[in-house]
Write a protein that binds this DNA or RNA. Sequence first.
DNA 1: GAGTGGTCTAGACCACCTT
DNA 2: AGGTGGTCTAGACCACTCA
Lengths: 248, 248
Amino acid sequence: MIGPMQKAAEAGSGPHYLALRDRLVEEIACGALGAGARLPSERRLQLGSGAARGTVREALFQLEAEGLIYRRDRSGWYVSPPPVVYDPTRWAGFMTYVAEQGRVPTTETLHKHTVAAAAVDAAVFGCAVGAPLYALARRRAIDGRPVLIERILVDPAIAPGLIDHDLDGSLTAVLTGRYGVRVVRNHVEMRPCALIKDIAQALGVASGTPGLLVVRRSYDAADRIVEYDHEYWRHEAIRVLVEVRTRD
Amino acid sequence: MIGPMQKAAEAGSGPHYLALRDRLVEEIACGALGAGARLPSERRLQLGSGAARGTVREALFQLEAEGLIYRRDRSGWYVSPPPVVYDPTRWAGFMTYVAEQGRVPTTETLHKHTVAAAAVDAAVFGCAVGAPLYALARRRAIDGRPVLIERILVDPAIAPGLIDHDLDGSLTAVLTGRYGVRVVRNHVEMRPCALIKDIAQALGVASGTPGLLVVRRSYDAADRIVEYDHEYWRHEAIRVLVEVRTRD
DNA sequence: GAGTGGTCTAGACCACCTT
DNA sequence: AGGTGGTCTAGACCACTCA
């Protein structure tokens, strides 16, 4: 056939990009491409499939959405390592539960300073707009791969001088050990999202990469908010698990 | 300029598709495009932006990933209604918590029959491979819009004759009311995914649409599994919320 | 039947990573 | 410097929805 090809659903096998997807899934499943392995370049995948580059990329986006592969910006596509399991009902910090699963967690403080409470934050903290809050941004990695960016707000009244400490480890440990803070209630909210601009850049991923946003609010016995935390995860790096006994 | 354009980051404002995204976000935020409203067609959006259709689609995919818009296959793009809040720690069925939030839930049974337990399912149920299980597939909608497909497996020993009942309402109610089943423990797992083939088709969305998979296992006092449930949600239709008291 | 999104081609230049 | 992904153009045909 001459000119632009017809495409779509020939031989009843569905779109080309799904066929390529299936081929790659199989190669991942059978171990030809192990966890962490780098995929052939997009242009090389074209050769093997006769497809246009856009079509190849569609297959890759599909696999990315499914969490099977991820990309490092302008570097290449890689097979995703297994996800870590996160249980919001357990009050264990990142460093703890990641290590428990045989992985190596690291934390890096991107910046920490005092900010003026925005309207939204003031509502959460029950303070005046413009009141001082500690703001902390951290990047956390598993086995050396950055998996989340978090932005934490803390009321200085609860932990004066907090940001003068080393916060590259467990914030929970510092709050408990140095300030005697006891968290009795957690409010956790999750939703799929897209990682855009700053977040994507900090994680070294392309803007628009699928993610999972976890918002956590921790309260002490006096019902004061201890920690207001936004975690932006690479969506394929985490699996949320909740175990509950029914009250009745 | 002649021939293929240069694109990317002119005027320091980032890619074209993000500029278009921002424009649409604003129109949604300011109310020019209300919840449920239909967006202009892709070809019409081209005119207003001078972009190629592929670029317009990139902007739309971005908004879809962020949950702001959704599509009806081959019909058009629409502004997403607000999500419902789902709390896995509460043992309330879909029909209940959706109604509580002022929305109209509906359920439709796609098929129900007896199947032979696959290896994976047998492991969960602690039964032999090939043992009979009730399999149930339902489509659930909010305000008339299908938001999830669920596949439920139930052990016939726990609820003999279950699939002869009308299951277009609350399965929980039937299990409790007719069979005296009491669920004391829930195991819930969630992860972002892509909705593919059958699921996508049943929801009337394009294959590859972002989704959220919720897997729930309910156990009774004897620790027998009562219900093994896979829910495939449109990702923008749900927000997960967990409220926990810390044990210490 | 007109219009919509879904899929696909075949090029191009760019910013950035890697070596 | 060479290669990778990121962005973009300008077409095309198809399957489907909707009026």
